[in-house]
Amino acid sequence: MPRQKIELRIRRQDSPTGSSRWEEFSIPWQPSMNVISCLMEIRKNPVTKQGQKTTPVHWESSCLEEVCGACTMLVNGKPRQSCTALVDNMPDGPITLEPLTKFPVVRDLQVDRKPMFEALKIVKAWVPIDGTYDLGPGPKMSAADAELNYAFSRCMTCGCCMEVCPQYNSHSDFIGPAPLAQVRLFNAHPTGRMNAHERLDAIMGRGGIVDCGNAQNCVEACPKEIPLTEAFGDLGRQTTVHWLQSLFGK
């Protein structure tokens, strides 16, 4: 029996420096709604449950099919993409929406995930090709290797793993699970491997792989089921070998 009304509790904040407050909304149920379509309903008539006029809720979203990562927020306390948060799958009672807590709030439900993109620069998350002119085919790769790498290349920089990682926070230098997994990806590529040492150097110091506390929350939270903890085990071995090699000279 679907609910008649959808109740939402939304944590709102007007600016990065402002304080936050809760607002409640009540909107009519329609078939196949998700959290985004609820927010769209609210902006067509931005009035709280108590009848107070308010501003439309601010949020970030784009693809609405869980491939862009934009609409990540806390839905009932859990980090996830709000586009796949279907109302009919939610438990009874109000749905609470809050911004991610590990990134600065821009406004309402939008946060600034720039640190994640910056981290991709630090770990050199790319294959250093000579140029984009036509140089023929790339290296051969087995179907199995390609499939495993594909799992890692689906990371959409959404931030769920960062949100649940106890080591990733404002008083730690830890770079976080998502960029580390990209080191695993590029070090496995036949061309990317040529620069593996540069990526390993980047994650061997403070804030790197040793700061992972092995809480394993990340792998639970990842919406794309990326085998993050396996990657960190592998990176642990890679950095150890790299350290020994540099110790005894290649």
Binding site: W126, V127, I129, T132, D134, L135, G136, P137, G138, A143, A146, E147, N149, Y150, S153, F186, H189, T191, G192
Partner: peptide, 11 residues
């Protein structure tokens, strides 16, 4: 081929 060289995980 260019994307293959860039590391796209084509099937």
């Amino acid at each position: 081929y260019l994307f293959d060289r860039m590391g796209v995980t084509f099937n």
